[in-house]
């Protein structure tokens, strides 16, 4: 679907904008406690920055940056961070996602451990949402073609 047009203005503008969008995604993630935003919105922004690159270039170039295998690994990593934080609380003697138990392994009190635990869960959400957005877009745009990029 997306063929490369070799337009220098669009390509340089996309390359210039991408790091700023990604920095804003991280800002939204880390200030999600105090301001609007959080893991989901940050993840969508992070995925949108990569989608912008794929639109400005083409799918082959995009899959060279993030291969399908790496994307699948990212999907699983986010879910693992989320459930791993919950299971860690379970192992330390609390209930599932009871962050105050994390104070046993972190050098902070139970109140700060709650904040850090929420941040860890949000990081997991961000990774998974960003990878899933990229997956949905690449599947829709390529219609299952470009099998050579799967290697």
């Amino acid at each position: 679907m997306i063929r490369r047009h070799e337009d220098i203005i669009i390509e340089s503008l996309a390359r210039f904008l991408t790091p700023f969008i990604q920095a804003f995604a991280l800002y939204v993630l880390f200030l999600g406690h105090y301001s609007p935003g959080g893991g989901f919105q940050g993840g969508v922004l992070m995925g949108a920055s990569f989608i912008l690159l794929v639109i400005a270039y083409d799918i082959i170039e995009g899959k060279r940056r993030i291969t399908e295998k790496f994307n699948i690994v990212l999907n699983a990593t986010g879910v693992m961070v989320f459930s791993g934080t919950g299971l860690l609380c379970l192992i330390l003697g609390g209930e599932f996602l009871d962050y105050s138990q994390l104070a046993a392994i972190l050098p902070v009190g139970p109140e700060e451990a709650r904040g850090l635990g929420i941040l860890a869960v949000e990081i997991g959400v961000e990774i998974t949402v960003a990878a899933i957005m990229v997956s949905i877009f690449l599947d829709l745009a390529s219609a299952g073609e470009h099998e050579e990029a799967l290697k």
Binding site: V28, Q41, V44, G47, A48, M133
Partner: peptide, 11 residues
């Protein structure tokens, strides 16, 4: 509104 702007209008 933030979610609507990123998901609805953007992606």
């Amino acid at each position: 509104a933030f979610t609507e702007a990123t998901v609805g209008a953007g992606v």
